[in-house]
């Protein structure tokens, strides 16, 4: 008879809020990320969800995969809807129309709903300082409508509106840096996360919801369908994104940067790129361009860490 040793994984809460029966594709790491975020946030949570994959897979009327109060309104306004929920609860509790209770408000949207069409509403909500956590599930394209490029699609990726052609090698713009845009709002908490690192993700969600004011979490959510990888590799590919430095895991707490998954030496980006169908067409030259860019951005991140950590020590 074996004895069960506690691990962070077998000690996770058994409560589920994004339930089985949802219609996400096989191996969808975004669905996993949603499951983990809601596990971390717990029962006293209201979710506002943008139009997109997660909305479609979870709410075919009259059925729902949500074991939480959940509202979907439109594509670009999730941050505003969540602002309204927060403002409504605040007013009702202050006026004694509802009993005082700590209810967390979580807004969720994809990369299109966040860095493209929802950017204005998000900026407004962060600037106004609502007490909510905004989670961007970034699968790097408009997957729900059929893998069209977004401003979060990385350089070189082939999508249906940035196809790898004879003349143009897929997406020719660099991924918009959403976490930095959130940081520029000087909100209490910004973090990147990836469900390949579930414990890191859960800790960040818990930190985000426990801090008063707005928080922003940007979750790289591997999409086997859109990235053209086998469904069983979704976790592995997410891990490679982190270990190559393409998607570093860090947090910015009250302006202070901290890398939460440290890597002594980054793996070459090639290891990440070549296992994905969307990058299959990339030449050595393009791969080295990407490598150079990743090195630069990672260096910059390290500088921000050093600079802000330095300030922290001075205090």
């Amino acid at each position: 008879m074996k004895t069960k040793k506690p691990t962070p994984y077998n000690q996770l809460s058994k409560e589920e809020f994004f339930l089985s029966g949802h219609r996400a594709c096989q191996g969808c790491a975004e669905a996993l990320a949603v499951r983990l975020v809601q596990k971390a946030a717990g029962r006293d949570t209201i979710v506002a969800c943008a139009t997109g994959c997660m909305e479609i897979v979870s709410s075919p009327f009259p059925f729902t995969s949500w074991n939480l109060p959940w509202i979907h309104v439109a594509f670009e306004n999730t941050a505003a809807v969540a602002s309204g929920v927060e403002a409504g609860l605040k007013a009702l509790m202050r006026k004694g129309k509802l009993p005082q209770r700590d209810i967390k408000v979580i807004a969720m949207a994809g990369d299109g709903g966040t860095s493209d069409i929802g950017l204005q509403a998000l900026s407004g909500a962060l600037e106004r300082g609502h007490n909510l956590t905004y989670v961007c599930y970034d699968n790097e394209a408009y997957m729900n409508t059929g893998i069209q490029r977004s401003s979060a699609t990385p350089f070189g990726a082939s999508t249906t509106t940035s196809p790898a052609g004879k003349k143009v090698p897929g997406q020719i713009t660099w991924k918009k840096n959403m976490p930095e845009i959130a940081v520029a709002h000087q909100i209490p908490y910004v973090a990147t996360a990836c469900p390949s690192y579930p414990i890191d993700l859960i800790q960040k969600v818990q930190k985000a919801i426990s801090k008063p004011g707005p928080a922003y979490i940007h979750i790289l959510s591997v999409c086997p369908t859109g990235w053209r990888i086998p469904s069983n590799l979704a976790i592995k590919v997410g891990r490679l994104a982190v270990r190559t430095g393409i998607f570093p895991l860090y947090e910015v707490e009250d302006g202070i940067y901290r890398i939460t998954q440290k890597t002594s030496k980054l793996l070459p980006v090639k290891e990440y790129l070549t296992i994905q169908g969307r990058f299959r067409h990339l030449t050595e030259e393009l791969i080295s361009q990407i490598q150079e860019r990743v090195n630069q951005e990672y260096e910059l991140l390290l500088k921000k860490v050093a600079m802000t950590q330095g300030e922290k020590k001075e205090e």
Binding site: N10, H22, L32, P195
Partner: peptide, 22 residues
């Protein structure tokens, strides 16, 4: 199996459950 629970944690469909024997 060492009952580490990693399979449980990584399941996108919450389709893996812990049995009474762990």
């Amino acid at each position: 199996c060492i009952m580490c629970g990693m399979c449980y944690a990584f399941c996108p469909d919450a389709a893996i459950f812990e049995r009474e024997d762990g």
